[in-house]
Amino acid sequence: MQNSHSGVNQLGGVFVNGRPLPDSTRQKIVELAHSGARPCDISRILQVSNGCVSKILGRYYETGSIRPRAIGGSKPRVATPEVVSKIAQYKRECPSIFAWEIRDRLLSEGVCTNDNIPSVSSINRVLRNLASEKQQMGADGMYDKLRMLNGQTGSWGTRPGWYPGTSVPGQPTQDGCQQQEGGGENTNSISSNGEDSDEAQMRLQLKRKLQRNRTSFTQEQIEALEKEFERTHYPDVFARERLAAKIDLPEARIQVWFSNRRAKWRREEKLRNQRRQASNTPSHIPISSSFSTSVYQPIPQPTTPVSSFTSGSMLGRTDTALTNTYSALPPMPSFTMANNLPMQPPVPSQTSSYSCMLPTSPSVNGRSYDTYTPPHMQTHMNSQPMGTSGTTSTGLISPGVSVPVQVPGSEPDMSQYWPRLQ
């Protein structure tokens, strides 16, 4: 039975679970980093996980050691009161100082060594604690504590007292930064006198190289990059290397530039699409467009005044059976039934097929058609009795279509119309 579990990581490298990497692998990681390889490249070359490479390099940059820390136990506290007071002093002298600059000053002034120097995250935590204590304490208590930490007896009751030896409130920041720059020169002199001055200088240079600022491109470089971006948004590694040799930039910087440029292009394309949609959409909808001609068919113009009344309900007709019959029939052209047409008796099958359309009241044959006459024609229609054979009435077949029909004066039988409509 094995005491430890061995495995293979996602890159194909072998590791022992819970145990640190061998010293030979750690040394190779540092050597590759000094030669300029990126952590992701080191991870692929040595088949070590990216997190492990970053952790080893980060500890090497901070402490200069590649040895693993002790497994188990607690780390001794490195942010001692003396170190905290120095950090507060540096922050007062130059409020814009960075944590890694404070760390360098602690090393250069001999406050800490490589073994007990606090990390950048520890210094940031100390600065946050100082800021929170400043908010919790009152103004007087804060000034007393700062005077105690600074070891001075001057008056701290006013704002300019934060910067000793100065009279203009805006000047101390520059003086403090100048003092810090002077301390940086002392850093070089002190570290050069040490035993491991060369190694420390190499480590600091490598650290500065990794902690780079934003790349500033010249106009020629920007023009070359934009020209390549117009050709393709995704250049391959050969195109990037050719462009890197042409404009004297690292291939990694060119790759990052193209990634950022593609993101910018997507944002601009989104804005262009929004403007295009806004320009195509009308600002207001016309009133006429809300009524579609496919839904509402136009009603033909009436030929006679009587045809303006298109349904039985508008003429005072309360018989719903006839109203439904007229509205359900398709529109037909106007025609006239003459008196000489043969009077065919209704076929029983045809009569039964339209039995649902006729009223059940037996008085329908005896009703006159003056009910369908509009009010303004009552006088004219009353002067001509319906009993004469020459009287013409208008029957409504569908809305908007008038059918003048000659009705025999002897017997106005409704059943004569249905064979004609089939």
Rank of each mutant, 00 (worst) to 15 (best):
Gln2Arg: 14
Gln2Met: 13
Gln2Pro: 12
Gln2Asn: 14
Asn3Trp: 08
Asn3Cys: 09
Ser4Val: 11
Ser4Tyr: 12
His5Glu: 08
His5Lys: 15
Ser6His: 15
Ser6Pro: 10
Gly7Tyr: 09
Gly7Arg: 15
Val8Asn: 05
Val8Lys: 07
Val8Gly: 04
Asn9Phe: 01
Gln10Phe: 04
Leu11Asp: 02
Leu11Asn: 04
Leu11Val: 04
Leu11Gln: 07
Gly12Leu: 04
Gly12Thr: 02
Gly13Glu: 02
Gly13Gln: 03
Gly13Ile: 01
Val14Lys: 15
Val14Trp: 08
Phe15Asp: 01
Val16Asp: 07
Asn17Val: 15
Asn17Met: 15
Arg19Ser: 02
Arg19Leu: 05
Arg19Asp: 03
Arg19Gln: 04
Leu21Asp: 00
Leu21His: 05
Asp23Tyr: 10
Asp23Pro: 07
Asp23Lys: 07
Ser24Gly: 10
Ser24Gln: 12
Ser24Asn: 11
Ser24Arg: 12
Thr25Ser: 07
Thr25Glu: 06
Arg26Ser: 02
Lys28Arg: 11
Ile29Ala: 04
Val30Thr: 05
Val30Cys: 06
Val30Pro: 02
Val30Arg: 06
Val30Glu: 01
Glu31Phe: 06
Ala33Trp: 08
Ala33Lys: 09
His34Thr: 14
His34Glu: 14
Ser35Leu: 14
Gly36Asn: 08
Gly36Ile: 00
Gly36His: 06
Ala37Ser: 09
Ala37Gly: 05
Arg38Gly: 01
Pro39Cys: 13
Pro39Ala: 11
Cys40Arg: 07
Asp41Met: 07
Asp41Ala: 07
Asp41Gly: 04
Ile42Leu: 01
Ile42Ser: 01
Ile42Gln: 02
Ile42Glu: 02
Ser43Val: 04
Ser43Glu: 00
Arg44Val: 05
Ile45Asp: 08
Ile45Met: 14
Leu46Glu: 01
Gln47Asn: 00
Val48Ala: 04
Val48Phe: 01
Ser49Arg: 01
Asn50Phe: 14
Asn50Ser: 15
Asn50Pro: 14
Cys52Arg: 01
Cys52Tyr: 02
Ser54Gly: 06
Ser54Ala: 05
Ser54His: 11
Lys55Trp: 02
Ile56Arg: 00
Ile56Trp: 07
Leu57Trp: 01
Arg59Thr: 05
Tyr60Ala: 00
Tyr60Met: 00
Tyr61Cys: 07
Tyr61Trp: 08
Tyr61Pro: 03
Glu62Gln: 14
Glu62Phe: 03
Thr63Met: 03
Thr63Gly: 02
Ser65Asp: 09
Ser65His: 06
Ile66Asp: 00
Pro68Glu: 00
Pro68Leu: 00
Pro68Tyr: 03
Ala70Tyr: 06
Ala70His: 09
Gly72Asn: 05
Gly72Pro: 05
Gly72His: 04
Gly73Thr: 03
Gly73Pro: 02
Gly73Ala: 05
Gly73Gln: 03
Ser74Thr: 04
Lys75Thr: 04
Lys75Gly: 03
Pro76Trp: 02
Pro76Ser: 03
Pro76Asp: 02
Arg77Ile: 02
Val78His: 02
Ala79His: 01
Ala79Arg: 05
Ala79Asn: 14
Ala79Glu: 01
Thr80Trp: 02
Pro81Trp: 06
Pro81Cys: 06
Glu82Ile: 14
Glu82Asp: 10
Glu82Ala: 12
Val83Arg: 05
Val84Ile: 09
Val84Pro: 01
Ser85Tyr: 10
Ser85Cys: 10
Ile87Leu: 10
Ile87Met: 08
Ile87Val: 08
Ala88Asn: 13
Gln89His: 10
Tyr90Cys: 13
Tyr90Asp: 03
Tyr90Asn: 06
Lys91Glu: 08
Lys91Met: 00
Lys91Trp: 02
Arg92Gln: 14
Glu93Ser: 08
Glu93Phe: 07
Pro95Thr: 09
Pro95Met: 10
Ser96Asp: 14
Ser96Phe: 08
Ser96Tyr: 10
Ile97Glu: 15
Phe98Glu: 04
Trp100Arg: 15
Glu101Cys: 08
Glu101Phe: 06
Ile102His: 06
Ile102Asp: 05
Arg103Ser: 06
Asp104Gln: 13
Asp104Pro: 00
Asp104Trp: 09
Arg105Asp: 06
Arg105Ala: 09
Leu106Lys: 00
Leu106Gln: 03
Leu106Pro: 03
Leu107Asp: 10
Glu109Trp: 08
Glu109Ser: 12
Gly110Gln: 14
Gly110Val: 10
Val111Ala: 10
Val111His: 11
Cys112Lys: 05
Cys112Arg: 07
Cys112Ser: 09
Asn114Tyr: 10
Asn114Gln: 11
Asn114Trp: 08
Asn114Pro: 12
Asp115His: 15
Asp115Trp: 08
Asp115Asn: 11
Asp115Lys: 15
Ile117Leu: 15
Pro118Ser: 02
Ser119Pro: 02
Val120Pro: 15
Val120Ile: 09
Ser121Ile: 01
Ser122Arg: 02
Ile123Ser: 01
Leu127Glu: 01
Arg128Met: 02
Arg128Glu: 09
Asn129His: 13
Ala131Thr: 08
Ser132Glu: 08
Ser132Val: 11
Ser132Asn: 12
Ser132Phe: 10
Ser132Tyr: 10
Glu133Leu: 09
Glu133Phe: 09
Gln136Lys: 12
Gln136Pro: 11
Gln136Cys: 08
Ala139Arg: 13
Ala139Asp: 14
Ala139Leu: 11
Ala139Pro: 07
Asp140Gly: 10
Gly141His: 11
Gly141Leu: 13
Met142Thr: 10
Met142Gly: 13
Tyr143Leu: 11
Tyr143Arg: 12
Tyr143Cys: 12
Asp144Pro: 11
Asp144Ile: 09
Lys145Phe: 09
Leu146Ala: 14
Arg147Lys: 11
Arg147Pro: 15
Arg147Phe: 12
Met148Asn: 14
Leu149Ile: 09
Leu149Gln: 08
